[in-house]
Design a protein around this nucleic acid. Sequence first.
DNA 1: TAAAAAAGTTAGTTATGACTAACAAATTAA
DNA 2: TTAATTTGTTAGTCATAACTAACTTTTTTA
Lengths: 228, 228
Amino acid sequence: MTNKLNLNNLTKSEEDYLKAIFQLLIEDASVKVGNNQLADYLKVSPASTNNMIKKLKAKGYVVSEKYGKLELTEEGKSVAVRLIRKHRLWETFLCNYLNFTWDEVHDVAEQLEHIKSRKLIDELDRFMDFPKKDPHGEVIPNANGEYSIIPKITLSSLSEGDVCQLIAVNDGSVHFLKYVSEIGLALSSEIKILEVREFDKSIRIKFDNTIETVTRKFADNVFVNKVV
Amino acid sequence: MTNKLNLNNLTKSEEDYLKAIFQLLIEDASVKVGNNQLADYLKVSPASTNNMIKKLKAKGYVVSEKYGKLELTEEGKSVAVRLIRKHRLWETFLCNYLNFTWDEVHDVAEQLEHIKSRKLIDELDRFMDFPKKDPHGEVIPNANGEYSIIPKITLSSLSEGDVCQLIAVNDGSVHFLKYVSEIGLALSSEIKILEVREFDKSIRIKFDNTIETVTRKFADNVFVNKVV
DNA sequence: TAAAAAAGTTAGTTATGACTAACAAATTAA
DNA sequence: TTAATTTGTTAGTCATAACTAACTTTTTTA
Ligand SMILES: [Mn+2]
Ligand SMILES: [Mn+2]
Ligand SMILES: [Mn+2]
Ligand SMILES: [Mn+2]
């Protein structure tokens, strides 16, 4: 097995880059991820990402050809999944034990995910009795990095008459998450698409006897499971 | 009041330096703390500390004259106490909820103490029902930075015939803490000084029907409350 | 298919926080 | 009170990770 045991000697920055590449790759499994796209996502300059990519390639976490698109090695994916596990476990802890609301947890979890201690995160997992999902509905990978990929589509991809169930939301924006709660939507809400307006792609939806119009941008951040 | 509200914009390094100065200053309230002593304590070069001290002076956390000793401003002390509060609360959490032993908590707490979130630490405090002391017997400052200074002396400062109670131990060394547990000492143990050997300052002690000889170095890291 | 636009790369700069080597000031010992 | 030692400072270097500006390659559009 010659386990490389690569003792987690990665900087916070290196970890953040690997996580970002991983997330861009699953969000759009078909489309390739390039240097500038990564720069956009991380809100740094293309020169910065170019530089970091070189380092991550040298360390064996990333594969790419010059002027080509980015791929992660198994080692690279493993680092990313462990970060996501930590991020989601901490978010769950903050929500379920420390009175944080779902819009408050992300920024603190961004810090906590970089704490280096295998025992800490596995014990936190045990303490919470191995939760399966984080406060935003995302699946939490287990201690071996395994996790089920639940088929989910965005609310914006549905058509008039479709009925779906809200199973997850994008956790990156405080404003978005507050907005979701304010209009009364929550995980498991059943949503019916009343109308998709061609003009601006805004969508008229019904849930729990509430009727609301949401923008395309809003619907892009809501993940659902189609029911009808 | 013109509260400066200095939004916690300190780096991990700046925080560590302020905490180190604070700890050196209370450990030896009479003796002044100098640049090289700080370098020794932090295990960096005197050039590094000299450089950082300049920055902390410019930012208003440290006061000192050229070639003179170091002092902390009120702002500097406040940063240090908040760090110590976070460090001790995390250690308590790790021990009491996540199955860590008292020798395992320090290194992880060194990382966790730098997480920036007022709500996180105050909620953690509430969750544990406002513990008063950390696993090593040290007092935890409250949310306003207030804490009682319990008079404590080192075991090494006692004389033959004295009786004392173990109230705290230095939490910096894993080896030391394991050693303390192994010989059967714990917080609240009542210790009698049987003999102080002039030759090497080693001390023969008795506690719980156990008789042990400990070195001067060991006794320097054990804090007690003199009983007789 | 040639021009324009987008994507990616390189060079050079900056800030932080380490380091060593050389030097200056202060303290201690002879 | 001079000399030796300790303490503190400065200058110059390095690594990390950001930046801008200029350039090259690839892709798209006309
Ligand atoms: Mn991060
Ligand atoms: Mn989440
Ligand atoms: Mn620290
Ligand atoms: Mn402690």
